[in-house]
Amino acid sequence: MELRHKDLLGIEYLSPEEITLILDTAENFKEVSEREIKKVPTLRGKTIILFFYEPSTRTRTSFEVAAKRLSADTFNLSASTSSMVKGETLIDTARNLEAMNPDAIIIRHSSSGAPHLLAGRLKSSVINAGDGAHAHPSQALLDMLTMREVKGRLEGLKVAIIGDIAHSRVARSNMIGLSKMGARVRVAGPPSMMPPGLEQYGAKVFIRPEPALEDADVIMMLRLQLERQTGRTFPGIREYAKVFGLNRERVSLAGPEVIIMHPGPMNRGVEIAPEVADGPENVILDQVTNGVAVRMALLYLFIGGGQRE
């Protein structure tokens, strides 16, 4: 079994078998991070450019750690250090990068579809590290790895995703990926944060969080974009926390072995109450650990050994 893609643009392009391959590979790589010398030579001599046109600490660091543990050479380019601030187009910048013969370009961009724009024009593998509200495939994969680890399976899992679905690439990628793997996805949030047609992507849609939480195996809370949304899609923090925030009472609606996830960074006291954020159900740091393993697996499968010719 191998991946037959040059690029990873979105979870929608992966088959359930390919997702399983990535998760299995990631599981094997976890051990590397636990060694005293956390490095294997798998990608020695490979060049990876981290092209982050939108600020990111967590995802960029995670990809970089993953690449370095596989002995690849990494280079960072952010919007502020690139020529894009001087008016260069995305395609021109990418062509310049490609002239340096990288094996992969990992891109984060605020415009949905920006990785598609590059993938069609570049020979290197393009790995989407988050594009607009479209996709964040590596996040969904690390979330699925975490769920599978704790629950032993993905099929049949009841997963509640709560919050601003409209602006969330994490929600989209999880919804699509989990549905492919046979999980039962429910989403909840005010209609002002709910894009149309979610049912067609495999989700059951609720407005209030309570029915979505009922008997859930996994709760995934989404970050509220306070700076952009307050007063527009919801009246204010106080009311949002009261009606949609995850507190103890709401957690008690879920199944007995529920786990709580958050892609981070959290707004404590807004979408998630502090006592829940620090509670025993929380697997948020496992998500971060698994992030490195999943990204090692992706780099290995896309530019390392056992991938396409």
Partner: peptide, 13 residues
């Protein structure tokens, strides 16, 4: 257009 396709593509409708 705002609809199922814009939701999937993550584009504002």
């Amino acid at each position: 257009n705002e609809g199922v396709t814009s939701t999937g593509l993550g584009l504002t409708g």
